[in-house]
Write a protein that binds this DNA or RNA. Structure first.
Lengths: 230, 230
DNA sequence: ACCTGAACACCGTTCAAGT
DNA sequence: ACCTGAACACCGTTCAAGT
């Protein structure tokens, strides 16, 4: 019975958790995390579905592994900078890691328990705040306030990239103007700033950094006040 | 053929989208949103699965309907208060609505497109900021910065309520102290404040309001600066 | 002892057959 | 014309039968 060259090449390399994760990440990059199934990954690897279960206990464990792959490439914290710069640069590094995989933030949100890698990242961030002069209590509040922003994403409620044709978008804008006057006014103002825009026209990176700095400014103010009161 | 009394009582009331949504919300409250299937809802209503599709086009439309049920009970904005109080009270009202349904925030996050009800809510919030003296640009940034906090939730990365028995928790704490020294220190400090605590011991409502106020304070400062510069 | 095909207990949704 | 049972094309995972 002739096996294909590809299947032979595939089976030469032994199946490992790492190979499974690499295939899963590639598949999610291509088709989205929703169309990720154990059966499809197995097929992609030229392997029977049950073979995966030798290396991952369940689909959940595999999804956690995918999160770790993404979080694992975040830069180590700066060594000789103040807390604000250290946190800021690391958050932006986390953001770059996440942006490489459009499904990543959604996957992290959907997991009910954080992985050891994510907990370790958070532990390191707490250390930066404590060494930066935050009290334990303020550090605690800061971690809650920052939330997923520490991992480089914020929960966007509006999807920015509708793929409707222009004429449909024009009709939609007309109807929106009546039903949602304030949103329409805002969107019109944004578009006015940049005519080449698609979708709602928000600069996600700018908005992320704006919110991040707003948060960091607020925390710095509380830290200074705390130091003064002690 | 004898139908049960319950089935008869059920079938007397005609099937409507509202009845389906009520059943779906009740089922999600009880068993979580993950175990929500069209087939189970149909069963609960004493109806054949396909009967649901006369009233909802798809499962996605039904999930959107569930979001609308929750968002629909958020209080209208105050009439005669300043922007900060108006936003703050409404966000806290949204939070009360969400807390009644543990699955709601996760469901809202997971939807890719917001429902008209959610868009309408956001439109109204934008209006409050604009009338409160925010420029269009600052309003836009503020909406992004607030994100899902406007709907009363923040993305918690740590689940606060582990249901392990105390002895397991003690072992876990021991191991955590070694692997995650900063988290352990923080958790110990929080526990010290309140001995009666379960889980990590975070006061979610306090943390939410802390972050909300941090955000609102920052925005108020930017608004004042903007007014001064014009 | 290891591997894996078939099977189990589900999904959301289509569609044709029955009334 | 309406309603619905069976079927389709999937799932994640169990388990027993085969090597």
């Amino acid at each position: 019975m002739a096996t294909t060259i590809e299947a032979e090449a595939r089976s030469r390399e032994p199946l490992t958790k790492e190979r499974i994760l690499r295939a899963a990440v590639a598949l999610a990059d291509e088709d989205g995390v929703d169309s990720l199934s154990m059966r499809r990954i197995a097929q992609e690897l030229g392997v029977v579905p049950m073979a995966l279960y030798k290396h991952v206990a369940s689909k959940d464990e595999m999804l956690d592994g995918m999160v770790d792959v993404v979080v694992g490439v975040i830069d180590a914290p700066l060594e000789d900078a103040d807390w604000r710069t250290t946190i800021r640069e690391r958050v932006l590094s986390a953001r770059r890691a996440l942006l490489r995989h459009p499904w990543a933030s959604r996957l992290i949100e959907s997991r009910t328990a954080p992985t050891p890698t994510v907990i370790g990242y958070m532990d390191s961030m707490i250390g930066i705040l404590l060494r930066g002069g935050f009290s334990i209590d303020l550090t605690h509040h800061a971690m809650h306030a920052m939330g997923s922003r520490l991992l480089g994403f914020s929960q966007e409620l509006f999807d920015d990239t509708p793929d409707d044709p222009p004429e449909i978008q024009a009709i939609a804008r007309q109807q929106m103007a009546e039903a949602y006057p304030n949103i329409s006014e805002m969107v019109a103002a944004i578009r006015h700033d940049d005519e080449t825009v698609v979708g709602l026209g928000c600069d996600d990176q700018f908005e992320f950094e704006f919110a991040l700095d707003l948060m960091l400014d607020g925390l710095e103010r509380l830290r200074e006040r705390e130091g003064g009161a002690e």
